[in-house]
Design a protein around this nucleic acid. Structure first.
Lengths: 121, 121
DNA sequence: CATTTGACCTAGAGTTGCTCTAACCCGTTA
DNA sequence: TAACGGGTTAGAGCAACTCTAGGTCAAATG
């Protein structure tokens, strides 16, 4: 699979995938005889996880650490679990933040007085 | 009130407050005879709203637009309401994203096998 | 009275995490 | 044959901070 297809499959832009590779956040990617990257389903699975992690605010630094552990394989499982569990915790507080903000917005919107039908058109 | 106090009250760093002022996202801020900014409770209220908007991912561009409308006052209410309502909508989908990611993480963590007591220490 | 401390000021450099451009290569297709 | 549609790299540009350097001033301290 080439980069465009991988991009569509994982949700990251081709720019971002190349950037992540340069930044050492991806496992080895083989090249075809044409010099183009060849992505396996395992790569796509990895990219998809990274997509979720970045989309929900994990830093590149942490993602790099996570990838490094995966490369070492075996020994790093405990720390990888810890990174993901820690991130899951931050997601909980992010969700609370969003809820809080939604209520702040609701109050603010209400403070503008009742909506006029005309405004919505 | 000076900048440090305002910063503590609204949640934005003093750097960010100054940056927001330079970027035209704040109403006029008066200066004391010492040249230092003087923040009123209204400023703090405004900064706090901006804090929530940025913390939940609104772009500076949109925040600038929002501030511009507030400066004009009166006529802009409809569009301001629309901006906030639109943002409230994006928060809903963000919240759905987080939930989705939380379940992705739970599956991934489970795939590492049962946690060892030793790992948690 | 002199100086040092601390809070503020500005301009501008540095950082993170992309995002895009320029210039190039290579295989197919008209 | 040349031009099109992918891919490649290096590096510039951008958003949104974040911090540093060098300065002012007011109050506290030696």
């Amino acid at each position: 699979m080439k980069i465009t297809e991988a991009s569509k499959a994982c949700g990251l832009s081709v720019y971002t995938i190349r950037f992540y590779e340069r930044s050492g956040m991806l496992p080895e990617i083989d090249r075809g005889s044409d010099g183009h990257r060849r992505f396996t389903p395992r790569h796509v699975e990895w990219l998809t996880l990274l997509y979720w992690l970045r989309e929900t605010g994990m830093s590149l630094k942490q993602m790099r650490r996570f990838t490094t552990l995966a490369k070492e394989d075996g020994a790093g499982i405990a720390e990888r679990r810890q990174i993901l569990a820690g991130h899951a915790d931050t997601l909980k507080s992010k969700r609370a933040m969003l809820e809080k903000c939604e209520s702040v917005l609701a109050i603010k919107i209400a403070s503008y007085g009742p909506a006029h039908e005309e405004d919505a058109k």
